[in-house]
Write a protein that binds this DNA or RNA. Sequence first.
DNA 1: TTGTACGCGTTATCAA
DNA 2: TTGATAACGCGTACAA
Lengths: 355, 355
Amino acid sequence: MTRKTRSQPQKPLPRATIKEVAALAGVALGTASRVINKNSRVSLENKAKVNAAIAKLGYKPDMVAQSMRNGESHTVGILVRNITSPVLAGFVRGAQDVLSEQGYTVLLGCSEESREREVNFLMSAASRRIDGLIMITTSEDDPELLSLRQDINIPTILFDREIPESFDALLMAHEQGIRQSLEHLFSLGHRRIALLTGNDNVFPARARLRGYRSFFEARGLPVNEGLISANTFTSEGAFVETSAVLGMAQPPTAIILGGISMLAGSLSAIKARGLRIPEDVSLVASGDSDLAMFATPPISVVRWNNTEVGRTCALLLLERMKGATPAEARRIIVPTEYLIRGSCGPCPSAPLKSQ
Amino acid sequence: MTRKTRSQPQKPLPRATIKEVAALAGVALGTASRVINKNSRVSLENKAKVNAAIAKLGYKPDMVAQSMRNGESHTVGILVRNITSPVLAGFVRGAQDVLSEQGYTVLLGCSEESREREVNFLMSAASRRIDGLIMITTSEDDPELLSLRQDINIPTILFDREIPESFDALLMAHEQGIRQSLEHLFSLGHRRIALLTGNDNVFPARARLRGYRSFFEARGLPVNEGLISANTFTSEGAFVETSAVLGMAQPPTAIILGGISMLAGSLSAIKARGLRIPEDVSLVASGDSDLAMFATPPISVVRWNNTEVGRTCALLLLERMKGATPAEARRIIVPTEYLIRGSCGPCPSAPLKSQ
DNA sequence: TTGTACGCGTTATCAA
DNA sequence: TTGATAACGCGTACAA
């Protein structure tokens, strides 16, 4: 169904230039520029004339020309995996929030796990002379991406990624989060606990695996590698992996999801097998969401404040861009919170002494 | 917890320029430009030399300088209310998808319902010479925004907004969606049905109100204005409004949520009063989501394919930017789908003949 | 304090 | 086919 109405513009209107402002004010171009960039001294009279001309013409400085001149674009790139994840969207919102408040505009890139997209985004962002970059890369060891970043060489903050000795990084304490959830599940009698997370070429997966293994090792218990999957962060993947562990001869009595997009897929798999939460299987997710809060029962989560973390990343970047920071790359670990909800219950079978 | 590692760059590396390419190749600057922009004829020998120089220097054209020269930036602005809503995030993802495929980069703006932010984004985007714009504005009648848009005068696509005789607009068939859900609820015996939606200064609210009223009028039934709220699209607002209608002397037996972010708040309110869905109250939401799918019971929704709609908007914009479209503003209505899930049940009391 | 002129990196025009 | 040069809009060094 289509209806037509009045005309649409094809070409942008020409904007007033500083030259026109100067002409209208009857002063030299340099003078007009000086009143716009307050730093220099101009006679009150000329200042008034220029300001009048600016108002009359609706003059706004052209940032393209300014970039050309300064090298700065007042633009920051944010590269995420998938803007569709509420956790990442919250992150972007927070970062965008403080950046726009400081006069920066955000160039958004979504990799959708594609290296090609990442590289394209970085190239076009660099070619637009972005002043800074916040990245959540798909992997930490893509040589093309790394060398490209090296070439661009602008202030960069990594979120939840660590690339050997190079970048400022803000990392969530996933390791701690996993340990806390394991402690809780242990206290409920669970011993066969699955950890489903993504490929260990990124920090969050490694940290969670570390948390999981160290927990058992600290107690002198063997780590059941069969209960660990480090294959995927996606919802579809979570469906597959959850189905797989639940189909084992001795299925786990609890599952920890080590990825922010995995809950829906895992719930589907559990439902598909006709299992109840927490009577048949306990569940812990990563990253809070409406789904985790309103599921029946509500799902225990290792969570953090996405928006706040986004804000922090932006602030770190701003410091870096101002050059107000020591040259060493910083590595900041932000605590997570383990929140108990109804999805964790006592272990259905009597707890075994060791596994 | 902070740890330091190696050094961070402060200033971007200087990029190779076309001038350096020409010098290294031993040709004139113009010749280098010609081999880069294939259209013109260059001798095979010079072409080879230039290409060698490009490869050696890792030359990439500077888009800022290109913008300066052409006026085009290969950048598109997308302005949304709140990137945190999965529906809007899906929209952005779809749009970004096709735009980046066509060589455009996305400048993202989040208004968070603030007119000031909208205006700021538009100004800075214009000043960066964006080639096109996709907008979901906070209101349809903000004069400042309108005159600003007028000044900028670039190809623009509105999503779910209609501004009198001006812009291409892609509109969802919310009216149809509401009528379908009303039909379903009616068939289940419901007569007291609340509609909670946002302020009618934007299309989706108006369309839903129209759908609601026309449904009753078409059946010769009076419209119970007391069951209509047109105040808010937010989750917090939905909590308040849901609580309000449920607290009425004669509460509705069914509620339709006319906004994509309202479900969580409304569920909270229903739960807070200890009511069961659908035994005590039936519920229909707008826009599909993990929450709607996995709630207990799953929630019936008026839904559409967010990503696909975003893609369509981007395609419309691309056409507009190419000037391949008739000058008349287009107004395209996209169908919605009403999907029945477990949240709608028979009316708890015997259906009354008329209200 | 003000005006002039240059250069940022490109593309396009005009001569050669 | 190629080379030299103007222009895009701005900020600033330099001269007045």
